[in-house]
Design a protein around this nucleic acid. Structure first.
Lengths: 144, 144
DNA sequence: ATTTTTCGCTTGCATTTCACAAGTAAAATC
DNA sequence: GATTTTACTTGTGAAATGCAAGCGAAAAAT
């Protein structure tokens, strides 16, 4: 509910975004939720960048407190939780794809398929919309 | 020259971008260079987010080592340096604007003018191109 | 010519954050 | 009932950050 307990350094919109997700892990988590179909703690732990469990735990709490994701109990397994992007979280798709396009363009050893930055730049809105559709298709359907 | 001394955690394009600029300060510095017409150490120090001088110094070295900015001696004042974005740095304009649009949309007290996210989303490519033109107009002209 | 100011850092140190390893409780599976 | 899985939590040392002060070279003022 209380979105921000700590005072912001400024209300510059770029700074606001960076204070929310401008650390080394938050956007990795959002990438896995939004693009890679990973919705559970265990799945997110398997990210190839090897996030530590305490850091993942802290980031998930933080993202939930900021209203970027929501934590939902899995009705089929009461040990588990499903983390889904809220509309505020889905709105980060553009930033994730934009950073990914930059990375694909400038990393000579990128894992991204050739043509990724060009494809993205030729139709940003369409690429974002398609990625969101794909996200909704992957997202587990369960009631809160 | 040597772009990356430290091994990357992965060659995922999003991770590549985050390892380059995914800390709390690098994109603040890029915002000030790309959008706010700040090109000198002193000007960058004046950012309202109060970056410490040792952190700014370290980030400028890092961004230069990564080929994102270049450090140019000011011929009119030999104490000073001018930091300009390279083409790799200019390519971050989209990410900065995308994060700014997100911040403007979700910060209820944002400093951004009303309509900023809508304007950006209605024509991302055009907004980025216009911002780059404005950047080139502000950029001090001096030979290396 | 000499003092003062400006500029881009650097250094030292306390505080905060991070990373790695191990452990724990609750629920599910065997 | 014993074992395994899941989502964490709890240490602990290392690294990054933030703050204040200092420093040498160059420019500006006197």
């Amino acid at each position: 509910m209380a979105e921000n307990e700590i005072p912001l350094r400024s209300h510059c919109p770029v700074n606001f975004a960076l204070e929310a997700v401008g650390d080394r892990w938050s956007l990795i988590v959002m990438r896995d939720i939004l693009l890679n179909g990973k919705f559970r703690f265990r799945e997110l732990m398997e990210a190839e960048e090897n996030i530590a469990s305490n850091i993942l735990s802290e980031r998930l709490s933080r993202l939930a407190a900021l209203g970027i994701i929501e934590k939902i109990k899995d009705p089929h397994d009461r040990r588990q939780f499903v983390y889904q992007a809220t509309s505020k979280g889905e709105a980060l798709m553009g930033a994730v794809l934009e950073l990914g396009a930059w990375g694909a363009e400038f990393d000579p050893e990128t894992d991204a398929p050739p043509g990724t930055p060009e494809h993205y730049k030729s139709d940003r809105a369409g690429t974002i919309a398609a990625a969101l559709e794909s996200y909704h298709a992957m997202k587990p359907k369960l009631s809160k």
